[in-house]
């Protein structure tokens, strides 16, 4: 049994699952939403430097909103109802999944990506918030639309069960979800406006100094002190951790800025608001600047830094990102208010 589900690859799993599930639901109407539009309507863009939250004993930096927010905000913003389920029993979770498939429903699942055998070994890491859509079952294999892969994949039932019940931080506990009710057409304009306003508020009206665009400046100041505060080994670990979070986890800092830029271009066309196009250019510039920072940091870690890659230069680059994004999100608030 296999649903007639259109699989589309995406850069970011939550956005990909959200847009693929919604596009499946609205197949008859012919309306579709892109990954970028989903990211923007879900207010996916963010920045937070959280030195008190440790990943592998090193501070957490995030370039996006909390996991799950995009799906919830986009579906509720578009008036789409969703049924969520969690399970204690693996057997019951898999039986519930089978029942939904038999009823012809595409089912989103949260999994621990490390346990999915179709992931190449080099790309496996313990991340318990990997989203995918189960679209069928043939024999003992599930057919899966995993948005980070170019084509549909198959996964043995026992492996999917283990992935759905991966242990550790943010354990998925068999979480699954499906769309239960949707309006006849997608009303994009209000969801876009709300998504922009919510993201802009989080970025430039955030009272917490280490969040939003102020947080980027906060990181710049902290980073400049690292060489005086820590030994070289620790400093390089801190820089390396930051680059991995920026350029590897999810789509990375630069990648998310480019995705938001693409969203603003789409939003400009839908809302008929040309000012969004110029803000889109600013976000692309910010993404490029984040990558310049990552290169400087990588050169320090690799022992090939030049005088242009000093900690002061890295701090200045981050402050440039902060300035560009502050201007951009203030402009966005003006546009949608």
């Amino acid at each position: 049994m296999k649903l007639d589900f259109v699989h589309k690859q995406s850069a970011h799993c939550e956005c990909g699952v959200t847009s693929n599930l919604i596009n499946h639901e609205f197949k008859k109407s012919g309306q579709t939403i892109s990954e970028a539009l989903t990211f923007g309507m879900g207010s996916g863009i963010f920045f937070g430097y959280l030195p008190f939250i440790r990943i592998n004993k090193l501070p957490l930096t995030t370039f996006r909103c909390p996991v799950g927010k995009i799906f919830k905000q986009v579906t509720s913003g578009l008036g789409i109802s969703v049924k969520w389920e969690k399970f204690r029993s693996m057997d019951k979770a898999m039986a519930a999944l089978d029942r939904e498939l038999e009823m012809g429903h595409a089912v989103g699942c949260r999994t621990g990506g490390y346990w999915l055998p179709y992931f190449p070994p080099s790309l496996r890491f313990h991340f318990n918030m990997h989203n995918l859509v189960v679209v069928g079952k043939e024999g003992d294999n599930y057919l899966i639309s995993d948005p980070v892969f170019p084509d549909m994949v198959e996964c043995p039932a026992k492996d999917l069960a283990i992935a759905r019940f991966a242990k550790g931080a943010l354990a998925p506990k068999g979480s699954m979800y499906r769309i239960t009710k949707a309006p006849e057409t997608l009303a994009l304009e209000p969801a876009i406006r709300y998504g922009i306003k919510s993201a802009a508020n989080a970025m430039v009206k955030n009272p917490v100094p280490f969040l939003g665009t102020r947080g980027i400046g906060f990181l710049a100041n902290r980073l400049e002190r690292w060489p005086r505060k820590f030994d070289t080994h620790t400093t390089h670990l801190l820089l390396g951790q930051h680059i991995r979070m920026q350029e590897e986890i999810g789509t990375g800092g630069g990648g998310f800025r480019f995705m938001y830029s693409a969203f603003l271009q789409e939003a400009a066309a839908i809302l008929g608001e040309q000012r969004l196009v110029s803000v889109s250019t600013q976000l692309t510039e910010s993404g490029d600047t984040w990558r310049r920072f990552a290169v400087k940091a990588a050169r320090n870690c690799k022992g090939r830094a030049t005088e242009n890659d000093s900690f002061e230069a890295m701090g200045d680059t981050l402050r440039t990102c902060s300035r560009i994004e502050t201007e951009a999100f203030k402009e966005l608030l003006d546009i949608v208010s």
Partner: peptide, 12 residues
């Protein structure tokens, strides 16, 4: 992956 960042910026 640190070298990958350098390559991505280089091709740009």
């Amino acid at each position: 992956s640190l070298d990958a960042v350098e390559i991505v910026v280089m091709i740009q």
